[in-house]
Design a binder for these strands. Structure first.
Lengths: 339, 339
DNA sequence: TTGTAGGCGTTATCAC
DNA sequence: GTGATAACGCCTACAA
C-alpha cells in the first residue's frame, strides 16, 4: 500500500538517487528522466515520507505550539486563523505539544527536541506559569504571543497595549472628562500590566489626578466589570468615564450603570478593548479598541519562519497596531468643568 | 548537544539494545543495569527521538487534525480543552495539518500518511467541503466532530441535536404555545439538518400545524436572528415563541422583538442553543440548550484512541447529551388557547 | 541477561 | 547524468 522511493525508482527504472533529485527539484537529472519519474510519482500517488526526511535532515517541517492548559484565551480561534494563513505558504504543519504537567521532569525544550520541531510558538501563558528560561536560552527559535520574553533566539508579538489605552484616555479627555476610571484584568498578566501602564501614563501626561479608587483589577470578565462599576457608584465623587481592559468588562460596567439608573453615554462614557462581535450590537454600541488577531497570528509565523531561515538575525519584538473604533458609548462630559 | 541512544549506551558501558529495553520498559534487563542506565538517562537529560522511533515503528504518537480553513467554529477553543484533557493521558501530540488548498492534487490521506499520524480528527467542515470519501475508506482511524460520516475506520461524535430541539418545542407547548417558530442556521450543515429534523418531528408529534412561514434559515449569527424575527413580525399571525439554533440567533430575535415593542417573555418566548457566556446576562436571561463541548473533545480522543488500539472494533457514533437550561426568556402563552 | 547487525525511508557524498 | 552506499536515531530479531 504505502509506497516508498525505492518502489518509484524500480517502476521508473532509475536509482533512488535520481528519484530523490526529482522530488527535491535538484539539478543533474535529464529532462526526459525527470518527466518520466514525475509521471510515475503522479500515477502511483507517491508522497515522500516526512518522518524519514525529518530523520536524515534533522528537520521536520513542523512548528511546535504550547498553549496554556485548559486554554482560556477567548480569541485563540481568531489567532489560529492568522497562523493558518501564514502556515499555508511555508509548508509547515503545526504541532500542538501537550504538556505532561504531572511529570516533574517534563521539559519544554526536550519535548521540542524529541519532536524535531523547527520553531516554537508559546501562547496564552503568564510569565510564571512555566519555567520558560530554558527555552529562551535554547537555540530553538521561539515566538511568544502576548508575553515580552526576549532571548538569543526568542522574541515576541503582541498588540499595542500602552498606546491604545492612552488613546482612549485622551479621547475621553477631549470630551472634557476628568474623572476617568480604569477597570483592568489581572495585573499579573502581561497585557494587564501594559494596559495599566498606558492608563498611568495618560493620566500623568494629561495632568489629571490619579485616584486609586478609580482603578479596579479583575479578570477580564463581565462580572468583574459589574463589580467594579458597582464600587465606583458608591464613591461620593464617581467617575464620569470608564476605560475597560476588555469588552466583556465594559458590558458589565454598562449593565451596572444602567441598573443604577444612569444612561450611557449621557451620564457615563465607556470604552472597551478587543472589539468582540457583540460590541456593535450593545445599546449603545460600544466604543472600543480593536485588536488585530489575524495579524497577530500571521506575523508570529512569519517571524518564526525568518528566525528559522536566518538563525543569526536579531530576535524580533513586534507590536501590532490596534484600531480605535468610535461608536456611541462616549459623550461630552455633562458635569461642569473648571479649566 | 543532542544526545542519542548510542551516547547513553557508551556512558553506561552497555549496548544500545539494553538502553532501548530500559527506555521501553522491556524485560530481560537486570535491575542493576536498568537502574544505572536510568540514572544516566536522567543525568544526561536524554529523550528518545520521536522521529527516529516513528520511522522504525511506522507510528508517530501523533494524532492529526483537520480544521475548516479560516476556522469559524465559535466553540473550537472549548472543544480543544477537552481534546487536551484526554490527550494528556495518551501520550499523543496533536498535529494541525494545514491543507494546501491551492494544490489540486492535495490529498488528506496522503498528508496523513506522509506524517505517519495514527489517527485523524476532522472538525468544522460541512459534508461537501472536501472529498472525505478517500479518508473514510482508508484504514486511518478517523473521527468526525459534528458530521455523521461512518466508514470501516471512521466514526463521529456530535451533540444531541434532534432530541434537544424536540425538548425545547415540547417545553413551549407545555406553556401553551402553539405558534412556535424555528430559526435555524445553514441547512447544509450537519447540525442545521439535525436540528431542523428535531423541530419537524416535535411539531408533528404534538399535532401542531406546520407553517413554512414559521421557519427561517440563516447562518447562526445575531444578524440572521434579527432578520428572521423582523420577518415573523410582518406575519398577520405571528408566532408566540421562537426556538433558535444558536444563542446568537436568539439574541438577534430578542433585539428585533424588543425594538418592535414586544416584551420578553410576556409577549414572546425565546429559546437558544449553545449556552454561550452572554446568555446568562441578557435581559431576560436566556433559556437555552447547553452543549457539552468539553465532553465532545474529550470523547473524540478517547474513541480515536480505542480505534487505534483496537483496529477491528466497530466504528463509533457517539451522541453527547445536552442540558436544557431554563432561565427567564419563556412564559405561558398570553394568547387565548382553544383546546 | 547482553550484544550484534539489519532495516525503517530519505538525503547526501562520491564514484562512475 | 546517473547510481551505489553510508548516514540519520531507533527498534528488534537473532546470536552469544
Amino acid at each position: 500500500m504505502a509506497k516508498n522511493i525505492r518502489d518509484i525508482a524500480k517502476s521508473a527504472g532509475v536509482s533512488v538517487t535520481t528519484v530523490s533529485k526529482v522530488i527535491n527539484n535538484k539539478p543533474y537529472v535529464s529532462p526526459k528522466t525527470r518527466a518520466r519519474v514525475e509521471q510515475i510519482i503522479r500515477d502511483e500517488q507517491f508522497i515522500p515520507n516526512h518522518t524519514a526526511r525529518g530523520l536524515v535532515k534533522g528537520k521536520s517541517k513542523t512548528i511546535g505550539m504550547f498553549l496554556t492548559t485548559g486554554l482560556t484565551h477567548p480569541f485563540f480561534s481568531k489567532v489560529l486563523v492568522g497562523l493558518e494563513n501564514a502556515l499555508k505558504n511555508t509548508g509547515f504543519d503545526l504541532l500542538y505539544l501537550v504538556q505532561i504537567d504531572w511529570n516533574p521532569e517534563y521539559s519544554l525544550v526536550q519535548h521540542c527536541m524529541s519532536r524535531n520541531v523547527e520553531g516554537v510558538l508559546i501562547f496564552g501563558f503568564q510569565k510564571n506559569d512555566l519555567n520558560f528560561e530554558e527555552i529562551i536560552q535554547s537555540d530553538i527559535p521561539t515566538i511568544f504571543i502576548d508575553l515580552d520574553f526576549i532571548g538569543p533566539h526568542a522574541g515576541y508579538v503582541t498588540s499595542e497595549n500602552i498606546e491604545s489605552i492612552k488613546t482612549a484616555v485622551q479621547y475621553l479627555y477631549k470630551l472634557h472628562h476628568h474623572k476617568i476610571a480604569f477597570v483592568n484584568g489581572h495585573l499579573d498578566s502581561y497585557v494587564g500590566k501594559q494596559r495599566f501602564e498606558g492608563y498611568r501614563r495618560a493620566i500623568q501626561e494629561l495632568g489629571l489626578l490619579y485616584f486609586p479608587e478609580y482603578i479596579s483589577f479583575g479578570d477580564f470578565t463581565k462580572e468583574s466589570g459589574y463589580t467594579a462599576m458597582t464600587a465606583f457608584l458608591q464613591l461620593k465623587d464617581r467617575p464620569t468615564a470608564v476605560v475597560c481592559s476588555s469588552d466583556m468588562i465594559a458590558l458589565g460596567v454598562m449593565e451596572a450603570a444602567v441598573e443604577a439608573g444612569l444612561s450611557i453615554p449621557q451620564d457615563l462614557s465607556v470604552i472597551g478593548f478587543d472589539d468582540i462581535e457583540i460590541s456593535q450590537h450593545t445599546q449603545p454600541a460600544l466604543t472600543t479598541i480593536q485588536q488585530d488577531f489575524l495579524t497577530l497570528g500571521d506575523q508570529s509565523i512569519l517571524l518564526l519562519n525568518d528566525m528559522i531561515n536566518m538563525p543569526n538575525s536579531p530576535p524580533p519584538a513586534l507590536i501590532v497596531p490596534t484600531k480605535f473604533i468610535i461608536r456611541n458609548s462616549c459623550a461630552i462630559c455633562s458635569q461642569v468643568v473648571n479649566d
